[in-house]
Design a protein around this nucleic acid. Structure first.
Lengths: 116, 116
DNA sequence: CTCTGATATTAGAATATTCGAATATTATTT
DNA sequence: AAATAATATTCGAATATTCTAATATCAGAG
């Protein structure tokens, strides 16, 4: 699990971890929309939406197709995004730990735990 | 999709959207660990790890079981977290938009688009 | 109660994010 | 070319996040 990959994962999660951006993505999943459409739907300024779209684009979550002077934005990884939303929707009740014992830190099983 | 729910989703995504916290969660999925265990594994100070664990706990992603003076942390929503990681691993190639046309903003189909 | 290991909290500086205002760019129409 | 609609960029202030250093708390051993 190289650090490079996880950095990319973090970029994706961070991009989704903002209310406006999550809303944008949810709306785009319903269908491709241009910036003004999104602006009509969400309570944010045009510039701000454009900024958030840039963040989402840098995370490679959305992309756009130019259509005249409009940019038709769409989710370019729908399975990823829908999957995440699906998991969030199916919120399970928290599970308690099965068994409490966790680590080898206890004296009796100290086997090369502190720096060798 | 009430705002309250999405706020919670954002909290979860934001919590996962940090390199150290994502690492912590990945490690905890392998097995319950106390803070010192995590500290041994990851390049961060004890205080910092404790802080990140607090963030993860507030997002209800992890919880702990007290075991003497230790706190055995574990992922309390394993399906959610593993599901997200699984989706990130199966990174699909980006999909291009099927068809370019997107919105009703065009003059010819302007039907109640601007404020009625 | 004191000592120690384990963990948490606080405070503050460093850094990053967010957003509005203003401006720039790009494509289309006239 | 000028006007206009659509979108992007830049700047800067406000705010939030992150991290380190220091300190506090808490549990068990002696």
């Amino acid at each position: 699990m190289p650090a490079v990959i996880e950095n990319y994962w973090v970029t994706i999660l961070k991009a989704l971890g903002h209310p406006t951006r999550l809303q944008i993505v949810i709306e785009l999943l319903k269908g491709t929309k241009c910036v003004t459409d999104i602006h009509d739907i969400l309570p944010a300024s045009q510039a701000n939406i454009s900024q958030h779209l840039t963040v989402l684009r840098n995370a490679r979550i959305v992309d756009f197709a130019q259509d005249g002077s409009q940019r038709c934005y769409y989710v370019c990884r729908p399975e990823l995004v829908e999957g995440v939303l699906e998991l969030l929707r199916n919120e399970q009740p928290e599970s308690k730990a099965k068994k409490v014992q966790c680590c080898l830190r206890k004296p009796e099983n100290a086997d090369g735990h502190q720096a060798a």
